[in-house]
Design a protein around this nucleic acid. Structure first.
Lengths: 225, 225
DNA sequence: GTCTATAGCTTGATAGAC
DNA sequence: GTCTATCAAGCTATAGAC
């Protein structure tokens, strides 16, 4: 059918195979030899291009983090241009929609990256630090926008709500097929559009329930009397 | 100080050290030699008691799954005895509260187990299957209760909302310290009580927004006209 | 039940030829 | 840039002594 794509460089091949394998089996579940064998290159090239296994891992994380951070930041810009403070729903959408766009786009390698992020986000040893390093500067922009959108919110509440968003989002893109089994085939974990259109109002409702002034949550009742 | 606890059996020591190390570094990040060295026993005992590394892993997963499933099931029984259909909030609480109880109880080894579950839940290769095996029979009981509590809900919506709950819950118990950095020390990922009291109303509001008849979500508008 | 000893393999890294 | 060759270390699993 389509003409053969131009052959990628060895460096690119290494990084793409590594991304796919790390996403599937985790950092410790993959060896450099498996990566280089599938990429059709020699093991020694990993040292040449990336210094070490860890260096390869960091390079591949940073590569798409830079792209994603820019896309999310621009999405937030557009929302804030339209209205500032912006509706909570629009802010959440600006955070999640760029992921959806990439994952359903032509380049199906993005889903490997998000699967990897899901594992990192839930890694107790170095996951928190790693996520913070690559994404917290951007997340702070979203937190600021949410603070403006929810002026009566307690700062702590906003952080926890973001945490719930982060958990729901990364599990979604982990694409574990669990929901397929649980729902007897009614839902598919790879049906990212179905889940996204539910996730945004779900999370928005959660934020409003916890952070909006009108309905003070139960645990704050005592403080306010 | 307190008197020395009675010495545990070697089998118990293996399983407890394995649980802690697997939780910290994942299945592939830990070797049998590290486990048995820390437990002060010989490697060969793993084969004797559990057959293999995988057998040890399965045994340690099942051990606490049985306990947790019983506690959650009893919590749901109590809620349904009080009122059936039960309030959504009470059903969510019955699902999450037993975890909180264990994690803040005296036996601080439970938090290792939940940290491990967080990683499994987000593992794309075998995580979905593993979670389903140990927990789906119980989860179906909760789904049933939620269906009764939300009679206008589309079945698919309930599954997806459960999925969001699952993601938020497991990230919480992954305890990655990311929220500590993001919030500049305002929140602590190990402050499970703070997060739990926010998580239940957050998730409840999400369920209601997506599944309750009064406010049909936007994507169903077209189907209903 | 517990240990010694070891088979058989794989790992990440790297020195050095080309 | 790329490859060959190799190192030292680690791995799971297991046979067999006690």
């Amino acid at each position: 059918m389509a003409a053969k794509k131009p052959r990628k460089t060895r460096k690119e091949r290494i990084i793409e195979v590594a991304e796919r394998l790390f996403a599937k089996r985790g950092y410790d579940g993959v060896s450099l030899r498996q990566i280089t064998r599938e990429a059709g290159v020699d093991v020694a090239l990993v040292k040449y291009y990336f210094g070490s296994k860890q260096g390869l891992f960091d390079a591949l994380l940073k590569r798409r983090a830079d792209i994603l951070n820019r896309e999310r930041s621009e999405a937030l810009d557009r929302v804030l241009e339209r209205s500032n403070p912006a509706p909570v729903e629009d802010i959440i959408d600006a955070f999640t929609h760029p992921i959806l766009n990439e994952i359903v786009g032509e380049d199906d390698t993005w889903r490997h990256y998000f699967g990897l992020l899901a594992q990192i986000n839930n890694n107790p040893e170095w996951g928190g630090m790693t996520m913070s390093r690559y994404f917290d500067p951007l997340v702070r922009r979203f937190i600021d926008a949410l603070r403006d959108a929810l002026p009566d919110a307690d700062e702590v509440d906003i952080y926890w709500c973001y945490h719930f968003l982060s958990g729901a989002l990364t599990l979604t893109f982990a694409d574990t097929k669990r929901i397929d089994a649980l729902s007897n085939g009614l839902c598919h974990s790879s049906d990212f559009e179905s889940v996204h259109k539910r996730m945004v109002p779900f999370i928005t409702a959660g934020f409003k329930a916890i952070c909006e002034g009108e309905s003070r949550p139960p645990w704050r009742a005592k403080e306010n009397t």
